[in-house]
Amino acid sequence: MTDLSQALAPARPRLAGRLKLALCIFALMAAVPPLAHALGEPFLIVVATRMMVFAIAALSLDLILGYGAMVSFGHAAYLGFGAYAVAVLSRAGIDDLFLHLLAGIAASAVFAALTGAISLRTRGVYFIMITLAFGQMAFFFFVSFSTLGGDDGVALTARSTVLGMPLLQGAQGMFYVTLALLVLVFAGLYRLTLSRFGRVLTGTRESALRMQAIGFRPFPYQLTAYVIAGCLCSIAGVLLANQAIYVSPAYMSWHRSGEMIVMLVLGGIGSLTGAMVGGLVTIALEEGLARYSEHWRLGFGLILVLVALFSPGGLSGLLRRLGLGRDAT
């Protein structure tokens, strides 16, 4: 994946700029609920919640794809594990959000450790394809599970509770809990990418040979990152299930995995803020277009093709070429 590391090498963003941009985004998002009420458009809160859920998913993928140069095409599986953790536990009478998160994370960790260990034996196109295959395995597992609704999915009776409180019941509560988790995931990943571990991961992306020549074997670090990314993505899954009050295998389809890569490429990989912006913008675009036409995918697809053809590096690449915010994303 030399093309990837070369594409990334020159634009190692300044840290302060990234943090500033992230804080601006958080502040903007926090202002959405009061703004939506003032405009008399409360559905905006729901849309913004979905945007943030996928921003979390995109952030988690950025750790392995952007920082680790591991192009996973099966990341949506972890969205599904989080979502089905909610479905399974609430069916068993367990409603606590933290237990839901814990279960989703545990399931994801096991799946990621097993499949990651096998996938990391391969490189390049093979890695993309084998992660896709494992994603499809997870997808078909839940599709054929008739007790969990199979293909049709399963509706939840209620949203998770937080320490016994129905904090998520209202759109506003759901929104702010999601925002809080987004901030947490971003902050955690931000620290992680600067840590010793983050340096090893980034170093392996830039030159695996160099890392071996100073005494690192990349495998345990790559696998650990793969597991962490899966666990973080399951948080988005738990939130997605709660937001929709419904769980379906469609969350784990290869389309979702592709969409997550699209978010990253749109926003710019390997900077965290790019992933966050990509997640927010992609969902906003989809929801916005869907309000105009049932054939919104046509316009969305066209935008993707045009961005790929004419704006390599996604939105951040575009900004950079316009001479704006070189350090921003």
Partner: peptide, 20 residues
């Protein structure tokens, strides 16, 4: 260079403290 020092000394499974 610091990465090479890090390879020799201590664990690289440290996730939160900025290496810088």
């Amino acid at each position: 260079v610091a990465l090479a020092v890090q390879a020799r000394e201590g664990s690289s499974f440290r996730f939160l403290r900025p290496a810088a």
